[in-house]
């Protein structure tokens, strides 16, 4: 079994009380996430990204279709805690996911919920804080930390549960550029060094470009799916969906339109510099 997450023909509808109409937030989504991979999910506001993420660890259950995490059906209630332990989640607002007034106690929260014995919890707290480079802050109060630091604490709190996969729902949206870099470096390190499967929902195209694969969601459906290069070359289609492309791709696109021959698959600054200076 090489898939961390398998989604088959997933439909999801929120119950809307005000008008009684249920408009599907997701419809007919098929998606497999390979173990150890790094996938970015992009799409404009309200396209269904968060709904998709919450379906991946049984915070929401499908209205139609199936979601399997590590082979377990998310609708199977007896496997609920396995599923949430295997697929951790980091949310957008760093303030609203920390539970305890002291950093190390917060990291312990997940393992404590899993009923792990105290000695092992202490070991995991230490290792998790070291993995995100926040061990020196273990005695601090979260409200005194920067946004990027708080988000790294939230990440440590998830890795203390030893997940195989972490779903990030716009983890950098509320951070300054420095905080964004801190968090992105941490995410990449977890993927490369710890082999944790990463699903990164983001609206920053330069962040999505770092993934192995990009999935574009539009109106609750998958609109594009492929490597960053193969997705970003479709500048016009992305625009129609209401998405930007990375600035370098944008420049390459405009240069091409002006008749200057620039290869289509340039998506990083480095590649652009190399090409233009050869």
């Amino acid at each position: 079994m090489n898939n961390m997450i398998e989604i088959k023909d997933l439909t999801f509808e929120y119950n809307r009380e005000e008008d009684g109409k249920n408009i599907p937030a997701l419809s007919g989504v098929d998606l497999n996430i390979e173990k150890g991979s790094f996938t970015a999910v992009i799409g404009h506001n309200g396209s269904g990204k968060s709904t998709l993420a919450k379906n991946m660890n049984a915070l929401l259950l499908p209205s139609g279709g199936k979601v399997y995490v590590n082979g377990y059906d998310t609708a199977d209630e007896s496997k609920l805690w396995h599923i949430r332990q295997a697929a951790g989640m980091v949310f957008q607002n760093p303030d609203n996911q920390l539970v305890s007034a002291i950093v190390e106690d917060d990291i312990a929260f997940g393992p404590e919920n899993l009923g792990i014995e105290p000695g092992e919890i202490k070991k995991r707290v230490k290792e998790s804080l070291q993995a995100v480079g926040m061990y020196d802050y273990r005695k601090k109060a979260p409200h005194l930390l920067s946004g990027g630091q708080k988000q790294r604490i939230a990440i440590a709190g998830v890795i203390a549960m030893r997940p195989e996969c972490i779903i990030f729902d716009e983890p950098t949206a509320m951070l300054d550029p420095y905080g964004r870099k801190e968090v992105m470096d941490t995410i990449r390190k977890l993927n490369k060094e710890e082999g944790i499967t990463i699903i990164l929902i983001t609206h920053f195209m330069d962040e999505a470009a770092l993934a192995d694969r990009i999935v574009v969601i539009d109106e609750g459906k998958i609109a594009l799916d492929g490597t960053p290069k193969s997705v970003f070359v479709q500048v016009e289609k992305l625009r129609k969906i209401g998405l930007e492309v990375p600035i370098v791709t944008e420049i390459a696109f405009r240069l091409r339109n002006k008749g200057i021959h620039v290869p289509e698959d340039i998506i990083s600054l480095e590649e652009m510099v190399n090409y233009l200076c050869q």
Partner: peptide, 11 residues
């Protein structure tokens, strides 16, 4: 949001 995050952490 906190309730959601706590649930995601198996509370």
């Amino acid at each position: 949001e906190l309730a959601m995050a706590m649930e995601a952490r198996c509370y």
